[in-house]
Design a protein around this nucleic acid. Structure first.
Lengths: 115, 115
DNA sequence: TCGCCTCCTATTGACATTCGATAGGAACCT
DNA sequence: AGGTTCCTATCGAATGTCAATAGGAGGCGA
């Protein structure tokens, strides 16, 4: 047995943008905190999203013009920055998805050669 | 249509180790140069492996004890460092593969929710 | 023998991203 | 008043990739 038991999925650099974009696209506007919660839930116990990773990612994406943040009040009456995906963001998402599929395809191709 | 036509796959950070390990595992001992050629061939025109990325990766893997390099003569009579995967490397490969599958599964789960 | 091409290893600096730790404000509940 | 949850945010360290560059050694043709 391996001596560790946590076995979290660590992000592959560059994957986070795809994940965030996709999440915003399907679930609509979200704020960082909520996003983290949703994703963690979807990912079961395997992925723990670092706040210190997520926030910079959102800033990055906003600077690129792929998402846009607006301050609003939460259901729980707190100030939160809700991010919405932009048109450019949708295009970006498509590209990132394509990129992912390519790499995944390549890796799978290698992984399949079990001979 | 997108305005560009090359669309190379850039590596997701952390993927290279998996690829190299897998390649060595299935094709047996290889030197860096040959490895690059083989991989590029497998990946069609989509992946261009950077030498500047591959060499450090091999050093890294050797330091971890996952691969072992020995100098030998090539068919073309040149000195080359042939890398072989070690037992620890095989275990590492399994872990990396598992890790990849997890992340790929997660991303795919997200990607499937097309609205 | 000279020069060039292919084969092959290798390093360097810039850059981007992630991690882990840490900080703090504001609303709500007791 | 005090604690907890919600929520945003930043910092330093570590890591990995990229693009460019350097160079030696064998083989081959002129």
């Amino acid at each position: 047995m391996a001596s560790e038991s946590k076995e979290r999925v660590e992000l592959l650099q560059g994957t986070l943008d795809l994940i965030v974009l996709r999440a915003l696209h399907t679930m609509g506007p979200q704020h960082a905190y909520g996003l983290a919660a949703r994703l963690e839930q979807i990912a079961q116990p395997s992925l723990t999203l670092n706040q210190g990773t997520l926030y910079p990612a959102l800033v990055r994406l906003e600077q690129k013009g792929w998402i846009k943040g607006t301050w609003q009040r939460t259901e729980s009456n707190r100030e939160a920055k809700y991010y919405t995906i932009t048109k450019a963001g949708v295009r970006g998402l498509e590209k990132q998805t394509e990129r992912w599929r390519r790499l995944a395809g390549l890796v799978d191709k290698l992984l399949l050669n079990e001979g």
